[in-house]
Amino acid sequence: MTGLLAELKRFERIDLSRVACHGAACCKAVRYRVFGRLMQYANVGAALAAVPELIRWGPVQWPAHWCDLPEGDGLTGDCGVHADVAAAVLTREAVPHSRGRAVLRPAPLAPAHWRASWNEAGAGDAWIAARVVHHEVIRVGDQWWDPSEARWFSGAGAHLSGGRVLAVREEHGSWQLDPEASATQALP
């Protein structure tokens, strides 16, 4: 448990992501590109599902601006970008929500891939620990929304495609731990 708590402490120091705007055409054009596309969806679920389809998951250097997202023909962003965009969609649709974070335990071989990709892009990899990773999520009602996978999940103890959710924490709230993880899956 000590190991997990230490990682939680460390992850708390990562700010929840807010994509910044230069206030100029460079950023305004990209922001328009994103939200213009998301406007077409008549229901919130479809718009939220479109976020990771529109913005391919990948490394971003923080602090990030909207104009940092275009890459090749598309847009690239990490879970922080997805969460920030998804939160804006929820705000537009007047759905009460709050930002949050989760700690996932991915499949053992996965973190090496992500670290390599982030290092190659020169982006910070503080979100990747030895056996757990930090992931930005959204609290909506009594459920959680994974903005990168477009899935509802119940909170700590759930499984996402990125791994098992060991802990969740609403912004300004306190950590809720996976009971099983706290009992038997303590990190070394």
Partner: peptide, 9 residues
């Protein structure tokens, strides 16, 4: 575990 349903656009 079981991965929840993924929403589609």
């Amino acid at each position: 575990g079981i991965t929840p349903f993924g929403w589609v656009a």
